[in-house]
Simulated scan of single mutants.
Amino acid sequence: MKKIVLGLIFCCSALAHSEIVINSNGDRVDLKSNGTWALVPWTDADFVNNNEKFTIKVPDGGNHDVDVLVTPDVSLQDDGRRIKRKDLEFEVKLAAITGRYKLKDRYSYVPREVSVKQRGNNVSITISSTAKNSYGADVPSDLTKEYYIEKNGRFTNKSMNDY
Results as ranks from 00 to 15, higher is better:
72 P>S: 05
79 D>V: 07
36 T>K: 07
78 D>W: 04
39 L>S: 06
95 A>E: 09
41 P>R: 06
78 D>Q: 11
102 K>A: 14
62 G>I: 07
68 V>A: 05
98 T>E: 08
101 Y>L: 10
72 P>Y: 02
100 R>K: 15
74 V>K: 04
98 T>K: 13
55 T>Q: 13
45 A>R: 14
76 L>M: 05
86 K>P: 01
81 R>H: 13
46 D>Q: 12
43 T>C: 03
38 A>F: 04
96 A>H: 05
60 D>I: 02
45 A>G: 03
38 A>I: 03
50 N>F: 01
101 Y>C: 00
47 F>L: 12
36 T>A: 06
50 N>V: 01
92 V>C: 11
100 R>A: 05
37 W>D: 04
58 V>S: 09
62 G>W: 00
47 F>W: 09
98 T>C: 04
107 Y>C: 02
63 N>R: 10
51 N>V: 00
100 R>G: 05
76 L>T: 03
97 I>V: 12
82 R>Q: 13
66 V>I: 15
42 W>F: 15
52 E>L: 09
57 K>Q: 12
50 N>D: 15
40 V>S: 09
54 F>L: 09
86 K>H: 08
94 L>F: 06
59 P>N: 10
59 P>Y: 07
63 N>L: 13
57 K>N: 11
49 N>D: 02
40 V>T: 11
48 V>N: 05
68 V>P: 05
53 K>P: 05
70 V>M: 05
80 G>N: 04
107 Y>S: 10
96 A>G: 12
88 L>C: 07
54 F>N: 04
99 G>K: 08
76 L>K: 02
60 D>W: 01
56 I>A: 02
107 Y>V: 07
63 N>M: 12
106 R>L: 11
64 H>C: 03
55 T>K: 15
98 T>F: 06
68 V>W: 05
36 T>G: 06
67 D>M: 10
40 V>I: 15
36 T>I: 02
51 N>K: 10
45 A>H: 06
89 E>G: 04
55 T>N: 11
82 R>E: 11
44 D>F: 05
83 I>S: 06
94 L>M: 09
37 W>E: 12
99 G>L: 10
94 L>N: 12
55 T>I: 02
93 K>P: 05
54 F>P: 08
40 V>K: 15
91 E>N: 12
78 D>A: 10
90 F>Q: 14
45 A>M: 08
95 A>V: 06
102 K>V: 05
87 D>R: 14
49 N>P: 04
66 V>Y: 02
58 V>D: 07
67 D>K: 14
43 T>E: 14
96 A>K: 07
70 V>E: 00
75 S>L: 01
66 V>P: 00
38 A>M: 06
97 I>T: 13
72 P>Q: 03
45 A>D: 09
96 A>T: 14
95 A>R: 04
50 N>Y: 03
54 F>M: 06
36 T>V: 03
51 N>C: 00
83 I>T: 03
38 A>P: 00
99 G>Y: 10
88 L>Y: 07
71 T>P: 00
60 D>T: 01
65 D>V: 03
107 Y>Q: 10
49 N>S: 09
100 R>Y: 00
88 L>R: 08
90 F>S: 14
39 L>F: 07
72 P>D: 02
55 T>R: 08
106 R>Y: 13
84 K>G: 10
66 V>T: 10
43 T>N: 11
57 K>S: 11
106 R>E: 13
36 T>P: 02
83 I>H: 03
75 S>F: 02
87 D>H: 14
